[in-house]
Design a binder for these strands. Sequence first.
DNA 1: GACCAGGCACATC
DNA 2: GATGTGCATGGT
Length: 221
Amino acid sequence: MTTILQDVFDRLLERFGPQGWWPGESPFEVMLGAVLVQNTSWKNVERAIANLRDADLLAPEPLFELRVEELAELIRPAGYYQVKARRLRNLMELLFDRFDGSLEAMFAVGLTSLREELLAVKGIGPETADAILLYAAELPAFVVDSYTHRVLARHGWIDFDADYHQIQEHFESALPQDVPLFNEYHALLVEVGKRFCKKTPACDECPLFELLPDGGAREPD
DNA sequence: GACCAGGCACATC
DNA sequence: GATGTGCATGGT
Protein backbone atom coordinates (compact mmCIF):
# COMPACT_ATOMS: atom_id res chain seq x y z
CA MET A 1 0.00 0.00 0.00
CA THR A 2 1.11 3.51 -0.72
CA THR A 3 0.93 6.10 1.98
CA ILE A 4 0.77 9.82 1.40
CA LEU A 5 4.28 10.14 2.80
CA GLN A 6 5.63 7.79 0.17
CA ASP A 7 3.79 9.77 -2.50
CA VAL A 8 5.34 12.96 -1.19
CA PHE A 9 8.81 11.46 -1.24
CA ASP A 10 8.46 10.12 -4.78
CA ARG A 11 7.21 13.45 -6.01
CA LEU A 12 9.96 15.45 -4.35
CA LEU A 13 12.67 13.11 -5.55
CA GLU A 14 11.37 13.22 -9.10
CA ARG A 15 11.17 16.99 -9.04
CA PHE A 16 14.43 17.87 -7.28
CA GLY A 17 16.61 14.77 -7.63
CA PRO A 18 19.04 13.42 -5.01
CA GLN A 19 20.30 16.15 -2.71
CA GLY A 20 23.61 14.57 -1.70
CA TRP A 21 23.30 15.41 1.98
CA TRP A 22 24.96 16.09 4.34
CA PRO A 23 27.48 18.56 2.91
CA GLY A 24 30.78 17.78 4.65
CA GLU A 25 33.92 15.77 4.16
CA SER A 26 33.92 13.69 7.33
CA PRO A 27 31.52 12.50 10.03
CA PHE A 28 33.24 14.83 12.48
CA GLU A 29 32.70 17.83 10.25
CA VAL A 30 29.07 16.80 9.77
CA MET A 31 28.61 16.63 13.52
CA LEU A 32 29.99 20.13 14.02
CA GLY A 33 27.79 21.40 11.22
CA ALA A 34 24.72 20.03 12.96
CA VAL A 35 25.36 22.36 15.89
CA LEU A 36 26.51 25.33 13.82
CA VAL A 37 23.44 25.30 11.58
CA GLN A 38 20.98 25.77 14.45
CA ASN A 39 18.57 28.51 13.31
CA THR A 40 21.16 29.68 10.78
CA SER A 41 21.60 29.56 7.01
CA TRP A 42 24.00 26.92 5.73
CA LYS A 43 25.98 29.59 3.87
CA ASN A 44 27.11 31.07 7.16
CA VAL A 45 27.98 27.66 8.54
CA GLU A 46 30.26 27.04 5.55
CA ARG A 47 32.32 30.10 6.44
CA ALA A 48 32.69 28.93 10.02
CA ILE A 49 33.75 25.45 8.94
CA ALA A 50 36.19 26.93 6.42
CA ASN A 51 37.82 28.87 9.26
CA LEU A 52 38.19 25.67 11.27
CA ARG A 53 39.60 23.84 8.27
CA ASP A 54 42.12 26.60 7.53
CA ALA A 55 43.28 26.33 11.13
CA ASP A 56 43.52 22.53 10.89
CA LEU A 57 40.94 22.11 13.61
CA LEU A 58 38.49 19.77 11.89
CA ALA A 59 39.43 16.78 14.03
CA PRO A 60 38.54 15.70 17.57
CA GLU A 61 41.92 16.17 19.28
CA PRO A 62 42.75 19.70 18.14
CA LEU A 63 39.20 20.93 18.69
CA PHE A 64 39.09 19.43 22.15
CA GLU A 65 42.28 21.25 23.08
CA LEU A 66 41.19 24.60 21.68
CA ARG A 67 40.08 27.23 24.16
CA VAL A 68 36.41 28.07 23.90
CA GLU A 69 37.18 31.77 23.40
CA GLU A 70 39.29 31.02 20.33
CA LEU A 71 36.70 28.62 19.01
CA ALA A 72 34.07 31.33 19.32
CA GLU A 73 36.07 33.75 17.18
CA LEU A 74 36.58 31.15 14.45
CA ILE A 75 32.91 30.22 14.19
CA ARG A 76 31.73 33.80 14.38
CA PRO A 77 30.21 33.86 10.86
CA ALA A 78 27.72 31.17 11.89
CA GLY A 79 26.03 33.49 14.36
CA TYR A 80 25.23 32.91 18.05
CA TYR A 81 28.94 32.26 18.19
CA GLN A 82 29.42 32.46 21.96
CA VAL A 83 26.57 30.04 22.58
CA LYS A 84 27.59 27.68 19.81
CA ALA A 85 31.23 27.61 20.90
CA ARG A 86 30.06 26.50 24.34
CA ARG A 87 27.79 23.89 22.75
CA LEU A 88 30.57 22.48 20.62
CA ARG A 89 32.75 22.39 23.70
CA ASN A 90 30.07 20.43 25.57
CA LEU A 91 29.88 17.98 22.69
CA MET A 92 33.67 17.51 22.71
CA GLU A 93 33.48 16.77 26.41
CA LEU A 94 30.96 14.02 25.75
CA LEU A 95 33.18 12.62 23.01
CA PHE A 96 36.31 12.56 25.16
CA ASP A 97 34.91 11.88 28.62
CA ARG A 98 32.70 9.02 27.49
CA PHE A 99 34.38 7.69 24.34
CA ASP A 100 38.02 8.66 24.64
CA GLY A 101 37.73 10.93 21.62
CA SER A 102 36.71 8.11 19.30
CA LEU A 103 33.80 8.86 16.98
CA GLU A 104 33.63 5.19 16.05
CA ALA A 105 33.20 4.23 19.68
CA MET A 106 30.56 6.88 20.13
CA PHE A 107 28.56 5.84 17.08
CA ALA A 108 28.83 2.18 18.05
CA VAL A 109 26.65 2.51 21.14
CA GLY A 110 23.56 2.44 18.96
CA LEU A 111 20.70 4.75 18.11
CA THR A 112 18.67 4.82 21.31
CA SER A 113 21.57 5.08 23.75
CA LEU A 114 23.45 7.64 21.71
CA ARG A 115 20.34 9.75 21.29
CA GLU A 116 19.95 9.90 25.06
CA GLU A 117 23.58 10.81 25.55
CA LEU A 118 23.41 13.54 22.94
CA LEU A 119 20.24 15.00 24.41
CA ALA A 120 21.96 15.20 27.78
CA VAL A 121 24.50 17.60 26.28
CA LYS A 122 23.55 21.21 26.94
CA GLY A 123 22.88 22.82 23.58
CA ILE A 124 21.87 19.66 21.75
CA GLY A 125 18.14 19.28 21.32
CA PRO A 126 16.13 16.70 19.37
CA GLU A 127 16.85 18.02 15.89
CA THR A 128 20.59 18.40 16.39
CA ALA A 129 20.78 14.97 18.01
CA ASP A 130 18.91 13.34 15.17
CA ALA A 131 20.97 15.15 12.54
CA ILE A 132 24.13 13.77 14.17
CA LEU A 133 22.60 10.30 14.38
CA LEU A 134 21.43 10.23 10.78
CA TYR A 135 24.05 12.18 8.88
CA ALA A 136 27.20 11.56 10.92
CA ALA A 137 26.56 8.18 12.56
CA GLU A 138 24.34 6.89 9.74
CA LEU A 139 21.73 5.54 12.11
CA PRO A 140 18.03 5.62 11.11
CA ALA A 141 16.68 8.65 12.99
CA PHE A 142 14.24 10.81 11.06
CA VAL A 143 15.21 14.48 11.35
CA VAL A 144 12.38 16.93 11.91
CA ASP A 145 13.04 20.61 11.35
CA SER A 146 10.98 23.77 10.98
CA TYR A 147 10.46 23.14 7.27
CA THR A 148 9.25 19.61 7.94
CA HIS A 149 6.72 20.96 10.38
CA ARG A 150 5.62 23.79 8.10
CA VAL A 151 5.35 21.74 4.91
CA LEU A 152 3.35 18.97 6.55
CA ALA A 153 1.11 21.24 8.59
CA ARG A 154 0.28 23.55 5.70
CA HIS A 155 -0.82 20.56 3.67
CA GLY A 156 -2.96 19.30 6.51
CA TRP A 157 -0.97 16.10 6.96
CA ILE A 158 -0.24 16.90 10.61
CA ASP A 159 -1.65 19.33 13.18
CA PHE A 160 0.03 22.70 13.41
CA ASP A 161 0.60 22.07 17.10
CA ALA A 162 2.16 18.63 16.61
CA ASP A 163 5.40 18.40 18.58
CA TYR A 164 8.77 17.04 17.48
CA HIS A 165 8.18 13.49 18.65
CA GLN A 166 4.76 13.26 17.05
CA ILE A 167 6.07 14.40 13.67
CA GLN A 168 9.03 12.04 13.89
CA GLU A 169 6.71 9.15 14.72
CA HIS A 170 4.52 10.12 11.80
CA PHE A 171 7.41 9.44 9.45
CA GLU A 172 9.09 6.56 11.23
CA SER A 173 5.87 4.57 11.55
CA ALA A 174 5.00 4.99 7.88
CA LEU A 175 8.38 4.30 6.32
CA PRO A 176 11.02 1.57 6.41
CA GLN A 177 13.83 2.41 8.86
CA ASP A 178 16.24 3.08 6.09
CA VAL A 179 19.18 5.47 6.42
CA PRO A 180 19.43 6.53 2.76
CA LEU A 181 15.67 7.09 2.66
CA PHE A 182 15.62 9.20 5.83
CA ASN A 183 18.65 11.08 4.59
CA GLU A 184 17.11 11.96 1.24
CA TYR A 185 13.66 12.65 2.61
CA HIS A 186 14.74 15.27 5.09
CA ALA A 187 17.00 16.95 2.55
CA LEU A 188 14.15 17.08 0.03
CA LEU A 189 11.78 18.58 2.59
CA VAL A 190 14.29 21.33 3.29
CA GLU A 191 14.66 21.96 -0.44
CA VAL A 192 10.93 22.22 -1.10
CA GLY A 193 10.62 24.31 2.03
CA LYS A 194 13.27 26.78 0.93
CA ARG A 195 11.73 27.17 -2.48
CA PHE A 196 8.01 27.10 -1.83
CA CYS A 197 7.19 26.90 1.85
CA LYS A 198 8.81 29.92 3.42
CA LYS A 199 6.90 32.10 5.83
CA THR A 200 5.44 33.74 2.76
CA PRO A 201 4.65 30.61 0.75
CA ALA A 202 4.50 30.12 -3.01
CA CYS A 203 2.00 27.28 -2.76
CA ASP A 204 0.63 27.48 -6.28
CA GLU A 205 3.98 26.45 -7.73
CA CYS A 206 4.80 23.86 -5.10
CA PRO A 207 5.10 20.30 -6.47
CA LEU A 208 3.05 19.06 -3.50
CA PHE A 209 0.16 21.43 -4.20
CA GLU A 210 -1.88 18.96 -6.18
CA LEU A 211 -1.64 16.34 -3.47
CA LEU A 212 -3.96 18.46 -1.35
CA PRO A 213 -7.38 16.86 -0.99
CA ASP A 214 -9.35 20.08 -1.26
CA GLY A 215 -7.30 22.20 -3.64
CA GLY A 216 -5.07 23.87 -1.11
CA ALA A 217 -7.28 25.98 1.13
CA ARG A 218 -5.52 25.89 4.49
CA GLU A 219 -5.38 27.95 7.61
CA PRO A 220 -2.28 30.11 7.98
CA ASP A 221 0.44 29.29 10.53
C1' DG B 1 15.56 48.89 7.81
C1' DA B 2 12.69 44.80 8.41
C1' DC B 3 12.56 40.04 7.96
C1' DC B 4 14.49 35.51 7.66
C1' DA B 5 17.56 31.33 8.30
C1' DG B 6 18.23 23.35 8.41
C1' DG B 7 17.30 25.50 17.47
C1' DC B 8 17.92 25.52 22.15
C1' DA B 9 17.94 26.89 27.05
C1' DC B 10 16.07 29.56 30.40
C1' DA B 11 12.86 32.92 32.78
C1' DT B 12 8.39 33.99 33.98
C1' DC B 13 3.59 33.49 34.56
C1' DG C 1 2.51 23.29 31.12
C1' DA C 2 2.32 27.07 27.98
C1' DT C 3 4.38 31.26 26.32
C1' DG C 4 8.18 34.72 25.72
C1' DT C 5 13.02 36.03 25.17
C1' DG C 6 18.17 36.03 24.32
C1' DC C 7 21.53 34.48 21.32
C1' DA C 8 24.14 37.07 16.17
C1' DT C 9 25.80 36.73 11.51
C1' DG C 10 24.86 37.52 6.64
C1' DG C 11 21.44 37.47 2.65
C1' DT C 12 17.08 39.35 0.49
